[in-house]
Computed example of a mutant assay.
Amino acid sequence: MAERIEVDPDALAGAAGLTEEVALGVRSVLTTLEQELVTYESAGPDQPWGSDKMGKKFIQGDANNGYQASRDNLLQGLEGMAGTLEEFAAGQREAVTALTTADQPAL
C-alpha cells in the first residue's frame, strides 16, 4: 500500500530560495579564497613559504600531499559543494512547478 505524502509548495519554494542562498554563499567564499590565494601564490620568490628546501617541502609534501594538493582539493570541494547546492535548488523549484501544475485541472 502506498503511503500518502503531503508537500507545501510554498514552503518548498522558500526552501529552494534558502538552498540557493547557501550555494551563493559557498560560491562567494570560493571566489574570495581564489582571489586571496592569487595574491600569495603569484608573489614569485617572495612567497610566504619561501623557495628553499623547507618551502618546497611545504608546497609538495612527502608524496604530493603538501599545500598545493590540499589547496586544489579544497577548491574542487568548494566548487562541487556550490554546484550540488545549485542543483538541489533547481530540483526543488522543478518540484514546486510539478506539484502546482499537477493540482490544476486539465483544460
Rank of each mutant, 00 (worst) to 15 (best):
L18E: 13
Q68G: 03
Q35V: 03
A2C: 01
A15G: 08
Q35F: 05
R27Q: 15
L78P: 06
V7Q: 06
G66V: 06
D62T: 08
A106V: 13
G17N: 12
D72V: 07
A13I: 03
S51W: 03
A95G: 04
T39M: 03
K53V: 05
G91K: 13
G91I: 04
A95M: 15
S28T: 15
E94N: 15
L30H: 12
A23F: 08
Y40L: 11
L12Q: 11
A89W: 00
G55V: 00
A106I: 09
E20Y: 01
V7W: 03
D52Y: 04
I5H: 08
E3G: 12
R27N: 14
R93T: 03
Y67V: 00
V29D: 09
Y40V: 03
P45R: 14
G61M: 07
T100N: 10
A95P: 06
K56C: 05
M54L: 11
I59F: 00
T84H: 10
L85R: 10
V29M: 10
I5E: 04
T100E: 15
A95K: 13
T84M: 09
E86N: 09
S42V: 03
E20T: 01
K53N: 04
L24E: 15
D52E: 09
D62I: 07
V29R: 08
G91E: 12
I59Q: 00
R71Q: 12
Q47K: 11
A82H: 04
T32W: 06
A69K: 15
Q60W: 11
T32N: 09
G55E: 02
M54K: 12
K56W: 13
L99W: 06
K53A: 12
G66M: 05
D72G: 13
I59T: 00
T100V: 13
V22A: 14
Y40G: 01
N64L: 13
G14A: 14
A23P: 08
L12P: 09
D52M: 02
T19Q: 11
E94H: 11
A90W: 01
G25S: 12
V22H: 06
R71M: 08
I5D: 01
M81D: 08
D46L: 04
Q92L: 13
P48N: 00
A63N: 12
A82D: 01
G80C: 04
